[in-house]
């Protein structure tokens, strides 16, 4: 049996503030198994995005352990965490975060180029990914020429570029209308069905309801981690 993709053990994240430290995540333990599709939901400020950033090795816990593929990464330096993100973790954000000066294809190629994938392989993989997200006809369009839904699809294709084990999405439908949001959730379902572990942060109960497992957070803690 393969180890969990990511496991947090007693993780706490405190932000020092002028008015006193703010605890965003408190002594939280959670395990995301390979192949899961998990949603994290809760009210604003409950710590769900902070948890996602810790799981994605963007942020480091103030205390506790974080294991990715069974390896403790909570004490890794910035360069090692960057390398880990590049190879094993894909990110999708509410604001898409595509590079405006690059075309859709170039945005998808970027992480592959950084990972040292050959040019021919990059092109082939990029073409396949854009086709996968239904944007084969938008290959050479820049982000400003894409709709919100299309831009988010390109962001998903970019997140999948280096075949990550874990795909993390932070409010991926937050800037989209309901119909487009549903299409994006459908795309996540397809990515999950194809074998990638997916964790989505959302405050939309309708989206959370479509995931097999939902983690409900409040005040930096998981209240309920039910699987359905």
């Amino acid at each position: 049996m393969s180890p969990p993709v990511v496991e947090a053990r007693g993780v706490t994240r405190t932000f020092p503030m002028p008015a006193g430290p703010v605890v965003a995540v408190r002594d939280l333990s959670v395990t995301i198994a390979t192949g899961e599709f998990v949603s994290i939901c809760g009210p604003s400020g409950c710590g769900k995005s902070t948890l996602l950033h810790i799981l994605g090795c963007v942020d480091t816990p103030s205390s506790g352990e974080l294991l990715v593929d069974g390896r403790d990464v909570s004490t890794l330096g910035d360069a090692a965490r960057s390398a880990l993100r590049l190879s094993k973790i894909g990110f999708v954000f509410q604001r898409f975060f595509l590079l405006p000066m690059l075309t859709a294809a170039e945005n998808v190629e970027l992480p592959q180029a950084e990972a040292g994938v050959s040019r021919a392989e990059r092109r082939s993989r990029t073409s396949a990914l854009l086709d996968y997200v239904g944007l084969a006809h938008r290959t050479h369009h820049r982000p400003s020429q894409l709709s919100g839904g299309e831009a988010q699809r390109v962001a998903i294709a970019r997140a999948l570029a280096n075949r990550p084990r874990l795909l993390l999405a932070d409010e991926p439908t937050g800037e989209l209308d309901q119909a487009t949001g549903q299409q994006i959730v459908g795309l996540f379902e397809r990515v999950h069905a194809d074998g990638t572990t997916v964790v989505v942060v959302t405050h939309d109960p309708a989206i959370a309801a479509r995931t097999p497992r939902m983690l409900s957070m409040r005040d930096g803690r998981i209240e309920d981690g039910a699987s359905r």
Binding site: V58, D78, A79, S82, A83, L84, R85, L86, S87, I89, F91, F93, F97, L98, L99, P100, L110, P111, E114, R158
Partner: peptide, 16 residues
């Protein structure tokens, strides 16, 4: 700033 943020989130190292 956004561009640097994206590059960092994707996994590009600071030095790079």
């Amino acid at each position: 700033r956004d561009t640097v943020a994206v590059l960092r989130l994707i996994g590009l190292r600071r030095r790079r």
